[in-house]
């Protein structure tokens, strides 16, 4: 395998990881601050993609579509928090899982009712279409480079928000001691709605960005949700930094598994079987990674034991 191909696959792994981070950041933020397991996070991702596809269809503008995705997912998130999630904070995780699972069903069938069963059209904008030649002779899709840039910018922005703003101080305080910041006069229910809407907006942004190169359809959020959970378990539940590192690890491991497993299997099982066996092993690579991380650090890489 040539160096160019290896570098290209490294970029692919990075891009996949960055996309996972957008999804996992909101999930881990919500868990960290409110102690809530939100299975409906994948539905917010879907809402972002559908909002982007409809607005892009009407206006033809990709930037407007992205903004619509952010707004729609944040609004849906805030609405869900106020009407449903708020009643779940004091209850145990099983109740939360049940209620947010019900939300998945409601949001999926609601979306089907509004948009129908057939996938929607959303494409990359003309100014980001096609490949660009990178130093070293790699032809890499411009859009994927943009996704990497947006993801890194969001990661930087979140780090600044958490570490350098008043809201960030409150979020960290909320993670550390919920009763105490309520006692200090912070409007905790408003803070929770805000954090939930922020997490939802991130999921919506991920849905819109990914929707342009994938299929915008009902149920698109669930496979990504599972990967996002793997990411936050590896990174340590509640840690944004953990989500970032975990997402990159998962992205790189998954890509490396898909590329190298079939090649590694060839001498073991022969040419004929290598493709199937390699592919089967590649699909479990990230779960092996998760098991190994948990073996060494049971609370995840950046989790508090």
């Amino acid at each position: 395998m040539s160096t160019v191909l290896l570098l290209e696959q490294l970029l692919n792994g990075l891009q996949f990881g960055v996309m996972l981070f957008l999804m996992a950041a909101g999930l881990t933020l919500i868990f960290g601050v409110m102690g809530l397991i939100n299975l409906a996070h994948g539905s917010l991702y879907m809402i972002g993609a559908f909002a982007a596809a409809s607005v892009a269809g009407f206006t033809g503008s990709f930037l407007l579509a992205l903004m619509a995705a952010l707004a729609a997912a944040a609004a849906a998130g805030a609405l869900i928090e106020v009407t449903v999630i708020r009643r779940l904070y004091a209850r145990d995780h099983l109740d939360q899982v049940l209620a947010t699972f019900a939300l998945i069903l409601i949001l999926s069938e609601g979306t089907r009712w509004l948009f129908g069963s057939f996938p929607l059209y959303l494409d990359v904008p003309a100014w980001l279409a096609g490949p660009v030649r990178l130093p070293g002779g790699i032809d890499y899709p411009r859009y994927r480079l943009a996704v990497i840039a947006v993801g890194l910018a969001v990661a930087g922005g979140l780090a600044w928000l958490i570490a350098g703003t008043r809201l960030g101080i409150r979020i960290r305080a909320g993670e550390a001691d919920r009763e105490m910041i309520a006692a200090l006069g912070v409007d905790i229910s408003r803070l929770y709605t805000l954090v939930f809407a922020l997490g939802a907006a991130l999921a919506g942004l991920a849905g819109a960005l990914v929707g342009a190169i994938q299929s915008v359809q009902v149920g698109m959020g669930e496979p990504v949700l599972i990967l996002a959970f793997v990411v936050i378990v590896i990174g340590g539940i509640g840690s944004i930094r953990g989500a970032f590192v975990g997402a990159l690890l998962v992205g790189l491991t998954d890509t490396a598994g898909r590329v190298f497993m079939p090649i590694l299997m060839q001498p073991l099982v022969g040419q004929q079987q290598a493709a199937t066996v390699g592919s089967a092993l590649a699909s479990v690579a990230i779960y092996v990674l998760m098991a190994l991380v948990l073996l060494v650090r049971p609370a995840g890489l950046y989790g508090r034991a």
Partner: peptide
């Protein structure tokens, strides 16, 4: 000859 994961959404690799 390549087999992908069922339900896979990203094909960059």
């Amino acid at each position: 000859e390549l087999y992908t994961t069922l339900g896979q959404t990203d094909y960059a690799a």
